[in-house]
Deep mutational scan, measured.
Amino acid sequence: DAPDEFRDPLMDTLMTDPVRLPSGTIMDRSIILRHLLNSPTDPFNRQTLTESMLEPVPELKEQIQAWMR
């Protein structure tokens, strides 16, 4: 099983494109984008959230890719 820090906190699946929300939570980009289609909010604190506020986490993405090899 993947380490917890590699798993999306909402869907508990392996992240492939991790992004940091303004709240500091790291999620998979595809999952948070799907959530934003229904509700333009951070799913953990209900603060306003837009796609432009998502910050890529390239170092975590590299760690996940290395773990998958």
Score class of each variant (00 low, 15 high):
Asp28Gln: 06
Asn38Pro: 00
Pro56Trp: 07
Glu62Ser: 12
Ile26Cys: 08
Ser39Met: 08
Glu5Ile: 13
Thr16Cys: 14
Glu51Gln: 09
Thr13Cys: 15
Ile26Tyr: 05
Glu51Thr: 09
Thr48Pro: 15
Asp42Trp: 04
Leu49Pro: 00
Gln65Trp: 14
Glu51Lys: 10
Asp12Arg: 15
Ser39Ala: 08
Leu54Lys: 02
Ser39Asp: 13
Asp42Ala: 02
Leu60Arg: 01
Leu33Arg: 08
Ser39Glu: 11
Ser30Ala: 14
Gln63Trp: 08
Asp8Thr: 03
Met11Gln: 10
Thr50Gly: 06
Ile26Ala: 02
Thr13Phe: 08
Glu62Tyr: 13
Arg20Ala: 05
Phe6Asn: 01
Thr41Met: 09
Thr25Ile: 15
Ile32Gly: 00
Asp8His: 05
Glu55Lys: 12
Leu21Arg: 01
Arg69Leu: 14
Val19Gln: 03
Pro43Arg: 01
Asp42Leu: 02
Met11Pro: 01
Asn45Lys: 05
Asp42Asn: 06
Leu36Pro: 00
Gln47His: 11
Asp4Phe: 15
Met68Cys: 12
Asp17Pro: 02
Asn45Thr: 15
Met27Trp: 04
Ile64Ala: 00
Leu10Arg: 03
Asp42Gln: 00
Val57Trp: 07
Pro18Met: 01
Lys61Val: 08
Asp4Trp: 15
Leu37Trp: 10
Ile64Phe: 01
Leu21Lys: 00
Leu33Tyr: 07
His35Gln: 06
Arg20Glu: 03
Ala2Lys: 05
Thr25Pro: 07
Asp8Val: 02
Leu33Val: 11
Phe44Gly: 04
Gln63Ala: 15
Pro58Leu: 10
Asp8Ile: 02
Val19Gly: 02
Lys61Tyr: 11
Arg69Ile: 13
Met68Asp: 06
Gln47Arg: 10
Ile26Val: 11
Ser39Cys: 11
Met11Glu: 13
Phe6Tyr: 12
Thr48His: 15
Arg69Gln: 14
Pro43Met: 03
Val19Cys: 07
Ser23Asp: 07
Asp12Ser: 12
Leu54Gln: 01
Phe6His: 03
Pro18Leu: 05
Pro22Cys: 06
Asp28Ile: 07
Pro22Lys: 02
Asp1Leu: 14
Ile31Tyr: 07
Arg34Leu: 14
Arg34His: 13
Asp28Met: 06
Leu49Thr: 05
Pro56Gln: 08
Asp1Ser: 14
Phe6Leu: 06
Arg7Ile: 09
Gln63Leu: 15
Thr13Val: 13
Ile64Trp: 01
Leu10Tyr: 09
Asp1Cys: 15
Arg7Trp: 09
Asp28Gly: 01
Met53His: 05
Leu36Met: 09
Ile31Trp: 08
Leu37Asn: 10
Pro58Trp: 10
Arg29Gln: 05
Ser23Ile: 02
Ile26Asn: 02
Met15Ala: 03
Ser52Tyr: 11
Pro40Lys: 14
Ile26Phe: 04
Ala66Tyr: 09
Met11Tyr: 11
Asp17Lys: 02
Ile64Gly: 00
Asn45Tyr: 06
Met27Lys: 02
Ile32Glu: 00
Glu5Pro: 09
Asp17Tyr: 06
Asp17Val: 03
Leu14Tyr: 06
Pro3Tyr: 05
Leu37Phe: 10
Ala2Asp: 05
Thr16Glu: 12
Thr16Gln: 12
Asp8Pro: 02
Phe6Gly: 02
Asn38Gln: 13
Asp8Arg: 03
Leu49Phe: 04
Glu51Tyr: 10
Glu5Trp: 13
Met27Phe: 06
Ser52Thr: 11
Ile31Arg: 00
Ser23Trp: 06
His35Leu: 12
Ser30Asn: 11
Pro40Tyr: 09
Met68His: 15
Thr25Trp: 15
Pro9Met: 07
Glu55Cys: 09
Asp1Gln: 14
Ala2Gly: 08
Ser23Met: 04
Leu21Ala: 00
Arg34Val: 11
Ser52Ala: 14
Glu62Met: 13
Thr13Ile: 12
Asp4Gln: 15
Met68Val: 13
Leu54Asp: 03
Ile26Lys: 01
Thr41Val: 09
Pro18Thr: 01
Glu62Trp: 12
Thr13Trp: 08
Ser52Met: 10
Leu36Arg: 00
Phe6Trp: 09
Asn45Phe: 07
Ser39Asn: 11
Leu10Trp: 11
Leu14Gln: 04
Thr50Val: 10
Met15Phe: 02
His35Val: 08
Met15Pro: 00
Lys61Cys: 08
Asp17Cys: 09
Glu51Phe: 09
Thr50Glu: 10
Lys61His: 07
Met27Glu: 02
Pro3Gln: 04
Asn45Ala: 05
Trp67Gly: 02
Leu37Met: 14
Met68Gln: 10
Ala66Pro: 01
Ser39Val: 08
Pro43Asn: 03
Pro58His: 10
Ile31Thr: 14
Leu60Met: 07
Leu37Cys: 11
Asp42Thr: 04
Thr13Arg: 07
Phe44Arg: 02
Met15Thr: 00
Met27Cys: 09
Pro22Phe: 03
Leu33Phe: 06
Leu54His: 00
Leu14Asp: 02
Met11His: 10
Asp28Lys: 00
Pro22Ile: 04
Leu60Gly: 00
Asp1Ile: 15
Glu59Met: 10
Pro58Ile: 09
Gln65Lys: 12
Lys61Glu: 06
Leu54Val: 04
Ile32Arg: 00
Pro22Ser: 05
Arg7Ala: 03
Thr41Ile: 09
Pro43Phe: 03
Thr25Asp: 05
Val57Arg: 03
Asp8Trp: 04
Glu55Ala: 10
Gly24Arg: 03
Ala66Cys: 10
Thr48Ser: 13
Ile64Met: 04
Pro22Val: 04
Gln63Arg: 15
Trp67Gln: 02
Ile26Glu: 02
Leu36Gly: 00
Asp1Lys: 15
Trp67Ile: 04
Asn38Asp: 12
Arg46His: 15
Val57Pro: 01
Thr50Phe: 11
Val19Pro: 02
Leu33Asn: 06
Thr48Val: 13
Phe44Met: 05
Ser23Tyr: 04
Glu62Leu: 13
Asp4Cys: 15
Gln47Leu: 10
Ile64Asn: 01
Asn38Lys: 13
Pro56Glu: 12
Leu21Glu: 00
